[in-house]
Computed example of a mutant assay.
Amino acid sequence: MSRAGGVGDVDRAVGYVLKQAATVLRGAMETALRPMGMTVSQYACLELLDQRPGSSVADLARATFVTRQAMTGVLAGLQERGWVTRPALAPHGRALPATVTGEGRRRLGEASTAVARVQERMLAGLEPARRERLLADLQACVAALDPDAG
């Protein structure tokens, strides 16, 4: 029995099912990345740095849904592995822009392929038009709740 004005049956609540999908997706990505010695946060950081070179720690943290402190740790780990380089001194202000190395790009290529396979499994039951609609609908949900989206 649901309360008046409540979300009703959680199995039919969009927010609950969306969180469930995100959790299952992250687990599948972790499983796919583990043999490569990479975490989802490391993969996301590499992908973003490759697509948006020079991103700040704050930008990377926001885009990967972790704290700045956590992203600093992720970057340090990537730097220790030789997948990312950062200057010792900031060229402007305090930001130390990170760059993906050749080895980091090679690792990213493997990881990106594995993550694409996970995404394809997730979307396998949807025709291309439904995939586009799902993406547009999710983007509309983000825009409705995030004043900074867009």
Rank of each mutant, 00 (worst) to 15 (best):
E110N: 02
T23E: 14
V24C: 08
V14L: 14
T99S: 13
A90I: 10
L134E: 10
A58G: 14
A70H: 15
R26A: 03
G37Q: 00
S41W: 10
P87Q: 08
P35H: 03
L96F: 09
A95P: 05
D137N: 08
A116I: 03
L123T: 09
V14E: 12
A28W: 01
G93L: 04
V118R: 00
V142H: 10
V115P: 01
D9F: 14
S2R: 13
T85H: 09
Y16W: 14
A21Q: 12
G77I: 13
G150L: 01
R133F: 07
V7Y: 11
M122K: 04
G6S: 15
P147Q: 08
A61I: 01
L48P: 01
G104I: 00
R106P: 00
D137H: 10
G37E: 00
G102T: 12
L78N: 05
G8N: 11
A136Q: 09
G102V: 10
R117W: 02
P35E: 07
G8M: 13
R86E: 09
E110I: 02
G150D: 05
L33R: 01
A140C: 03
V118G: 05
K19M: 12
E110W: 04
V7L: 11
H92M: 09
A149Q: 08
R52P: 04
A76G: 00
Q139R: 09
T67L: 07
L138G: 06
T31Y: 04
V115F: 03
V24R: 12
L108K: 01
E30L: 01
G102I: 04
L48W: 02
A88K: 04
G104K: 03
R117I: 03
G54S: 08
M36R: 03
A58W: 14
G102E: 11
G73N: 14
T101F: 07
A144R: 03
V40D: 02
T101V: 06
G27S: 00
F65P: 02
V57M: 14
R86A: 10
D59I: 15
G82P: 04
V14I: 13
A76H: 09
V66G: 06
V40R: 01
E80A: 12
Q42K: 07
S55M: 15
R107W: 06
A143S: 05
D11T: 14
A124D: 04
A32V: 03
D59Y: 14
D11L: 15
Q119R: 13
A4C: 09
L96H: 14
A114G: 08
Q20I: 09
G15Y: 01
M29L: 12
V7S: 12
Q51F: 03
R133A: 14
M122I: 13
R12S: 13
P35A: 04
G15S: 04
A63D: 15
L18G: 09
V10W: 13
A21H: 06
G6C: 12
A21N: 08
A140N: 05
A144L: 03
Q51L: 03
Q42G: 08
R52G: 01
Q69G: 13
D146F: 00
R131Q: 10
D9Q: 12
G8E: 09
G150V: 01
S56C: 15
V66R: 07
G125Y: 06
V100E: 07
Q119A: 07
R12M: 08
G109P: 02
R131S: 00
R131D: 00
R130F: 06
R26L: 05
G102H: 07
W83I: 05
A88F: 00
V17A: 02
Q20V: 15
